[in-house]
């Protein structure tokens, strides 16, 4: 499949999803040129690509690969604006892993 499954996760799940492609919705905290920090149930360090256009304070949905240092190498970023209910978003992450039969295939 050209578009692999990308389970929605938060910072605490990074360890479990090491070397996997994931989807993370978080709020941009800091931009540092080639890297950035978002808050997604904890701090997540991103390694950006050239196509990312992040804005501090905006919600952003990242698709990326978790590397060995638990940084996320960004493949795509979608701006979600400033009006995102992060409680709902974290409920989705909870549902994703609790009822994963409708969200992703286990190993």
């Amino acid at each position: 499949m050209d578009h692999p499954q990308t389970p929605r996760i938060l910072a605490p799940h990074l360890q479990t999803f090491q070397h996997k492609i994931v989807r993370i919705l978080g709020k941009v905290v800091q931009l540092r040129g080639e890297t950035a920090v978002i808050d997604a149930g904890g701090q997540v360090d991103l390694i950006l690509n050239r196509d990312c256009h992040l804005a501090v304070g905006h919600a952003v949905e990242i698709i990326g690969k978790v590397d060995q240092n638990l940084n996320v190498k960004v493949q795509a970023a979608t701006d979600f604006g400033t009006n995102i209910d992060f409680t709902a978003a974290s409920a989705v992450v909870d549902a994703t892993h609790r009822y994963k039969e409708i969200f992703y295939d286990g190993d």
């Binding site: 929605r8 709902a88 978003a89 989705v92």
Partner: peptide, 14 residues
């Protein structure tokens, strides 16, 4: 329009 719809939809489907 409102990206909360993504969360809303996935929760509704669940």
């Amino acid at each position: 329009e409102d990206h909360n719809e993504v969360s809303y939809h996935l929760l509704e489907a669940t």
